[in-house]
Design a protein around this nucleic acid. Structure first.
Lengths: 144, 144
DNA sequence: CCTCCAATTGCAAAAGGTTTGCATTTGCAT
DNA sequence: ATGCAAATGCAAACCTTTTGCAATTGGAGG
């Protein structure tokens, strides 16, 4: 779906800034920091402000258009939410590639948690490592 | 194990600051922010500096004495590592209680990842929700 | 017990990332 | 075409974490 439709679907105003941000996310299969996104967006939209990027990432996140990922190593990363419904990610520490994962571990232990009286509301499951490409190639580009 | 033994075991110098930090972590079953830890430590060790807390949390983390947790909501939290070996956490969003979990989802999908050519190096699995106590009680104290 | 050195600490300043207030601009419903 | 709420740019504030440096301290070795 193109950026404009995505925004209208969520009843968000269609601004050039929002479209640019979404396009950046659409044109990559890697996870990006707010800074990464800003650096890309400013190429097509000189003059866009950092706070606009931050504000819009928050909006897009709250509308479910993007996902937010916080690696152990620190920082916050974003990616377009491409799949409907619940899913997890496998992320390459070398190139940042993000691979969606169907599998969800919650099913396996939901019952056990309830037994203990714990009511789960959210969970996170992320896998980090090296993708097929980076496993082989050898040289490390922009690790994080 | 007491703080001093814990430090000596890892061949770290035993300082009053380190002991105080560890004791704070030993006296709770909840996850704490660096700020939380500082606020507690300063009660028993007036004059301790924030940077000392940060530096030591890093040291303790690298020695495996503490765990670091980064909730979706942001921020960085620490807890004493009480279990040997690999484990995950169930965390109460209300009181911060941290419950260790034996179950690890990696076993279930390790093979599938390798098939795809992905080499996992780290992963995280955390569950957030409300513990038995907070489920019932009702009032919310220090949510995060 | 004393001495000495590397490790640790306190302090202050800087760095880094993110948020906020406000005036201006812009999308879009009417 | 018009008006208004929403979005943006800008600058400053904020908060958390890191860093350089001088002073202090733990503990190994004498």
């Amino acid at each position: 779906m193109d950026a404009e439709k995505l925004l209208k679907k969520q009843q968000l105003k269609v601004t050039s800034q929002r479209k640019a941000i979404i396009r950046v996310l659409q044109n990559t299969d890697t996870v990006l920091s707010a800074h990464d996104i800003f650096s890309e967006v400013i190429k097509t939209l000189p003059g866009i402000n950092f706070s606009t990027v931050y504000r819009n990432l928050d909006v897009l996140l709250s509308k479910g258009i993007v996902c937010r990922i916080t690696p152990e190593s620190g920082g916050v990363l974003y990616e377009l939410r491409r799949e409907d419904g619940h899913h997890h990610h496998v992320i390459c520490k070398n190139c940042g590639a993000s691979i969606p994962l169907e599998y969800c571990p919650m099913e396996d232990i939901q019952a056990k948690l309830m037994e203990k009286g714990f009511t789960p509301t959210e969970h996170r499951f992320e896998i980090y490592g090296y993708c097929e490409k980076c496993n082989k190639g050898g040289e490390l580009n922009e690790p994080f």
